[in-house]
Amino acid sequence: MEKQPHKAIKLIDLKKHYGENQVLKGINLEIDYGQVVCIIGGSGSGKSTMLRCMNFLEQYDSGEVQINGKLLGYGSDAQGNLQLAPSHITQNDLSEVCMVFQQFNLWPHMNVLDNVMSPLLRVHKLGKQAAREKAIAVLEKVDMAHKIDAYPGQLSGGQQQRVAIARSLGTDPKIMLFDEPTSALDPELVGEVLKVMKSLANDGMTMVIVTHEMGFAAQVSDKVVFLAKGFIEEQGPPKILFTAPKSDNLKSFLSTWSERNSGIV
């Protein structure tokens, strides 16, 4: 991958609260283009909120989110004070960022092909033929081209998630965010989604993945970030982080996880 002048994503002292509850207490994180970063942590640690701030599905309270060097969601007025940017500017800054959701969020009233084609027609203004070709190409990539006429309700969770990934891919994202993409799936369906994600990682996609799949995180990620109570407690290459955790929180998080898994095997 060619060298980019800016970080794909840069978080500077990011803070966010819901009422009394301070969810993010000052997050600093840099993600390069081409990197695969997995975010792990217990529930309520702020993983999903952090991810949702990265594409402005949540407004953050203070600090900065930069996408490709540009401040996201805010601009400064004549006096230099930060103001909420108009939504079309924010959307433009986010045009290369796409999210894959835990609940897939395919549109149930459209079949598979229309789900993938619709953003291409409406947002990217492709012609019908071009949109169709592109949609089929990305569906082939996730091995779902044989189901173009099916409605989401007729598909398994794993199939729906693969279509959702294709829908994102169709818009040519540079950065893909995954919010617990396999957490809503039956165990036997997790593998097919992880396989698709692995192939994306091999293609050099910049990926930020909130996940509970430690094995997957260890295999594909360049960096693992451990979040606890709104802070990044530890981060580093998976080899080091998983084998030699420094903080007590991470140690207990990992041992809980391996206990649960060794019990099965």
Binding site: H88, N105, P108, P119, R122, R167
Partner: peptide
């Protein structure tokens, strides 16, 4: 989530209303 997905993919509010919310 269906509306968030639309915004995430670049739909305007009007487009989201017309092609996601109303038909559903």
């Amino acid at each position: 989530g269906h509306i968030e997905a639309a915004y995430d993919l670049g739909y305007s509010r009007r487009q989201t209303l017309v092609s996601i919310q109303l038909p559903q």
